[in-house]
């Protein structure tokens, strides 16, 4: 009897061991914007680095330059036994759809888009909710009653940011006008700070005094232009309050880092679940940033208003319209 128990324990240990320690061999494929874009991809990189620092487990990553390379990299990682494989960008939707079918034993994570497969976990964010919150702050901080939005590439995802923001600004103060501009129609729009700055200037000429940039690395030009003119900018994805301390009202934080970190952790702890995970204000997946750099800009009244908006969104009394549902915006 005793021998049997020991035997069973040994067998159980032998079976359990690889399931925990050896199985996790994480890999990340970034979007074509590149690892160090100070925004979306860099947040993903931050999450992977945090996992490495905490667990001591190495990961591999890859920065593709075009769509074909992205699919190739996902397949390369999967075929070399990497698990989980995380695709950071909606651009890898079709690639993951294909590769996940070829490697049913590998766990895939897709950020910002949805693939329905038993071995794929899709993580999307309710950017409209987070943008609503910074919109409330912008509406209250604006003295002119006009706020600005500068987006990167003209795709529905970015209109989702703009739409949530405009709703928040209008809710904060009746009649707040939101000026909207997109930087471009090609991928270069994510990396054109000069154009971003010019659009911000033209919006300021039209009376905007708070400008929200959702444009990857181009956003840095927007924040710069706002700071130069003594106006306020709003950062995106990562906490960009420290880019121009005192001139960045807040940042709309999108916890891509958390999504990547959790992806690695889930597989490490053998807690993978397929399906769609939508991270909103309630899940702390999106939010607004408050730190030493912008503490002076956010008055108690503004803080109270934005926290109330947050509570209302969680409670469901405020429903922020999602642009993607019908490709239109009420404001």
């Amino acid at each position: 009897m005793f021998k049997k128990v020991i035997g069973a324990a040994v067998v159980a240990a032998a079976l359990a061991a690889p399931a925990h320690a050896a199985d996790v061999k994480p890999a990340v494929v970034y979007g074509t914007g590149g690892k160090f874009d100070k925004s979306f991809n860099e947040a993903a990189y931050g999450g992977a680095e945090r996992f490495k620092a905490e667990t001591g487990i190495e990961y591999r990553d890859f920065e593709p330059t075009n769509d074909t390379q992205g699919e190739q990299a996902l397949r390369n990682f999967a075929s070399r036994g990497f698990n989980p494989v995380v695709g950071v960008s909606f651009a890898w939707t079709s690639a993951i759809e294909k590769v996940a079918a070829e490697f049913p034993d590998t766990k895939f994570y897709l950020i910002d888009s949805v693939v329905e497969k038993p071995n794929v976990r899709s993580v999307v964010f309710k950017e409209h909710e987070g943008s609503y919150l910074v919109g409330v702050l912008a509406g209250l901080a604006s003295e002119t009653g006009t706020v600005g939005f500068v987006g990167g590439m003209d795709i529905p995802l970015i209109s989702k940011f703009a739409c949530g923001y405009a709703q928040g600004a209008a809710a904060a103060k009746d009649g707040t006008k939101t000026l909207r501009n997109m930087i471009g129609t090609t991928g270069a729009a994510w990396n054109d700070p000069v154009r971003g700055g010019e659009l911000a200037k033209s919006q300021m000429d039209q009376g905007a005094d708070v400008i929200y940039a959702a444009a990857g690395a181009s956003g840095l030009g927007v924040l710069q232009a706002a700071a130069d003119a003594g106006k306020l900018g709003i950062g995106v994805d990562s906490n960009q309050n420290g880019v121009h301390p005192g001139s960045v009202l807040t940042s709309m934080i999108k916890r891509v880092d958390l999504a990547v970190y959790n992806a690695f952790m889930d597989v490490k702890n053998d807690k993978f679940e397929p399906g769609v995970l939508a991270l909103g204000v309630a899940e702390d997946g999106v939010g607004w940033a408050l730190d030493d750099n912008n503490a002076k800009l956010v008055t108690d009244e503004m803080k109270a208003a934005v926290e109330k908006a947050k509570a209302d969104i969680i409670a469901g009394t405020i429903k922020v319209h999602d642009y993607m549902t019908d490709n239109s915006c009420p404001n």
Partner: peptide
């Protein structure tokens, strides 16, 4: 675009 899809 396919309605409802994220990618254009």
């Amino acid at each position: 675009k396919v309605p409802g899809a994220m990618a254009p």
